[in-house]
Simulated assay, not measured.
Amino acid sequence: MLKSDFYFELPQELIAQDPLEERSSSRLLALDKRTGAVSHHVFREVGDFLRPGDCLVLNDTKVIPARLLGEREGTGAHVELLLLKRRSGDVWETLARPGKKCRPGTKLTFGGGLLKAEILETVEEGNRLVRFAYEGIFEEVLDRLGEMPLPPYITHKLQDKGRYQTVYARYEGSAAAPTAGLHFTRELLGQLEEKGIKIAYVTLHVGLGTFRPVKEENVLEHHMHTEHFQVSPETAELIGSVKAAGGRVVCVGTTSCRTLESAADDNGVVHACGGDTDIFIYPGYRFKVLDALITNFHLPESTLIMLVSALAGRENVLRAYEEAVRERYRFFSFGDAMLVL
């Protein structure tokens, strides 16, 4: 299986740079995974495809304003830290730029000294372990000084931090948003529940590895990034009861999908658990839990389009993407949505 098998032509102007004013007014392309048939809708109509007894699975992770702009003590040279993962206490694994100026022992300052940091060591993939020093509560300092770590293909400055969060975001820890969930409003979720559709929550803290390109031409040689997830006893029980009653499990986003598939045994039973997952889903994978998927339109040759192709078939997905390009759908994080069922 080759990386180039998942390539498609994407005009640059179709990459959405800003969120729509109203979340659920984005477009929705519905793809029948059996026939490859597509139809075009508005996202707020997603309930028309769901039945009472179905279960939507949402990732309730919350993006932290993980991009810090500061300077080196003594020289005033500009530096940037991107928080990736809290290791312990005030020690974080970060991506530092410029890396050659951030050697162990280097001291940094942010916000005129409101936040200080020392580079402790260089770890895997050139990331830096950093210890922070501050007064008060770290999250409050970060909220004041940090910026949202938008994907590299978004060049516009985000005016409202809240638009890079889902309306149900709860547990802080992500360096990127689970973007399929950005289309939901509280009103829409309420309407779906009134229709008899159940809502389940999982947590997967999205890492920047989600944007890492596949470099190897042989897909099977790609090293998948690791992300931390959690599935509660309540969610595991709810999904089990939905399956037993003949309902469908509809994952909102590839992150929810990867979480459930990581937490399920070979019989498709989801267990309450937590830990790190590096599950890589590509064509040939047999889904244990997921029946349908709500997702955005992804990068050519990315692990995300490979996951969607595992569910709906590569040919069906690429034909649907070609039609989305013809119909001028908006792509990537702030773009439109696709429903595969």
Rank of each mutant, 00 (worst) to 15 (best):
Lys161Pro: 04
Thr106Trp: 00
Asp143Thr: 14
Glu135His: 09
Gly89Asp: 00
His156Asp: 01
Ile154Cys: 06
Leu82Ile: 11
Phe110Gly: 08
Gly146Cys: 09
Gly112Asp: 05
Glu139Tyr: 13
Gly89Pro: 01
Val79Lys: 00
Gly89Met: 08
Ile137Leu: 03
Ile154Pro: 01
Phe132Ile: 04
Pro104Val: 13
Gly70Ala: 08
Arg86Ala: 11
Lys107Asn: 14
Thr94Glu: 03
Leu68Thr: 01
Thr109Phe: 03
Arg131Ala: 13
Glu140Thr: 15
Trp92Asp: 04
Gly99Tyr: 05
Phe110Leu: 06
Gly99Leu: 12
Ala66Met: 07
Glu93Tyr: 08
Cys55Gln: 07
Leu108Pro: 03
Leu68Trp: 14
Gly70Met: 07
His78Val: 10
Trp92Met: 03
Glu125Phe: 09
Glu93His: 08
Phe138His: 09
Val167Asp: 11
Glu147Pro: 03
Val141Thr: 15
Leu81Ala: 01
Asp143Ile: 12
Thr75Lys: 10
Leu84Gly: 04
Ile137Trp: 04
Gly70Trp: 03
Pro65Arg: 15
Val123Thr: 14
Asp90Gln: 06
Gly113Leu: 06
Ile137Gly: 00
Gln165Ser: 10
Cys55Ser: 13
Val167Trp: 15
Leu115Asp: 12
Thr122Trp: 13
Glu140Arg: 12
Arg103Tyr: 01
Val91Glu: 00
Ile137Glu: 00
Arg163Asn: 09
Glu93Met: 12
Leu150Arg: 03
Ser88Glu: 05
Glu73Pro: 06
Arg163Leu: 11
Tyr168Asn: 03
Lys100Gly: 08
Gly136Thr: 14
Ile64Glu: 02
Lys85Asp: 14
Thr106Glu: 08
Pro152Ala: 08
His156Lys: 14
Gly74Met: 07
Phe138Asn: 08
Met148Gly: 00
Lys85Thr: 10
His156Arg: 12
Gly136Trp: 06
Phe110His: 02
Glu125His: 06
Gly53Ser: 10
Gln165Thr: 05
Leu58Arg: 02
Tyr168Gln: 01
